[in-house]
Structures are given as structure tokens and as C-alpha cells.
């Protein structure tokens, strides 16, 4: 089964992203909990790419693979002139966040909670965010 797909840069494309992920999650034998966490982290990164690079025309590529030692490797690849490295964002001050009842920045916080590894690469205008989930 194909482990890579490209998706249009729009919120409405999420339904197709989730369909693609569902097939891979079933193939890899993920639990309901793992499925939810993978869907959520991919949505957060995908929507960050949609929002931070909204004028670009190219599609966003997502790949999902499983290693022999039961790691799910998820990569999202985008063309970005102004790269946004989510691994460099400050940890959310949840006390302050809750106190002020803000509503932004939660996505990256959730990714850091749910994934075992996150990395970011940027070369020649192409950004790649890779997340690893041990299952």
C-alpha cells in the first residue's frame, strides 16, 4: 500500500488526510488510542502548514511508515520560504494559559505530549517535520 500521499493546502482536505491515515493505522495494527493520537498530531502539523504558508500552491506530502521495531514514522513535507520550526517553540506555560484562557498554541503542546520524537529539517526551501510514535 502506498505510504506517501500529497494533499491540497486547505482545511477541507482533512477528510482525505484522515482517510489515508486510517488505512495506514489499520495496516500497522494501531490501537484506537494510537489512531487518535496520530490523527491529532498530523492534523496539528498539517493545519500549521496550511495557515503559515497559505499563499503557496504546492501540495503538502504526508508519509507514514512502520519500522521493524514498532515505531510509526510520520513525515510532513512542505515548500516553505519562511520555515516554521515547531520544535523550537517555547513550551506552553499552562498555568498562564489556563489563567488567561488563551486559545492558541495548544496543538504543538499536544504533539509534544503524544509523540515520542519530533524533528525538523529545512533545506533549499523544503521543510520536513518528522514525528515518531512508539507502538
Amino acid at each position: 500500500m502506498n505510504s506517501n500521499m500529497k494533499f491540497s493546502r486547505k482545511t477541507e482536505e482533512l477528510v482525505n488526510v484522515f482517510q489515508f491515515l486510517k488505512k495506514k493505522e489499520i495496516e500497522f495494527g494501531c490501537t484506537d488510542r494510537q489512531k487518535m493520537e496520530i490523527d491529532l498530531c498530523v492534523e496539528e502539523v498539517f493545519m500549521n502548514m496550511v495557515r503559515h504558508n497559505s499563499t503557496a500552491k504546492n501540495k503538502i506530502q504526508i508519509s507514514v511508515n512502520k519500522t521493524a521495531d514498532n515505531k510509526i514514522i510520520i513525515s510532513l513535507i512542505d515548500h516553505e520560504d519562511h520555515p516554521f520550526d515547531i520544535t523550537k517553540t517555547d513550551d506552553l506555560d499552562l498555568e498562564d494559559y489556563v489563567e488567561k484562557k488563551k486559545s492558541g498554541g495548544l496543538g504543538i503542546h499536544l504533539i509534544k505530549q503524544m509523540m515520542d520524537e519530533i524533528s525538523f529539517e529545512h533545506q533549499r526551501g523544503i521543510s520536513k517535520i518528522t514525528m515518531v510514535k512508539n507502538i
Binding site: 487518535m36 491529532l40 492534523e43 484562557k101 488563551k102 486559545s103 492558541g104 495548544l106 499536544l110
Partner: peptide
Amino acid sequence: LDYISSMGLSVLVNTYK
């Protein structure tokens, strides 16, 4: 409800405010 992402949480936070 099976799933909620940060955008869903944001809607609830804004409603709460």
C-alpha cells in the same frame, strides 16, 4: 464525541470566554 483537536478546543475556549 470520538476526537477533538486544538481547533475544537479553541472553539470551546472562545465560547467559555
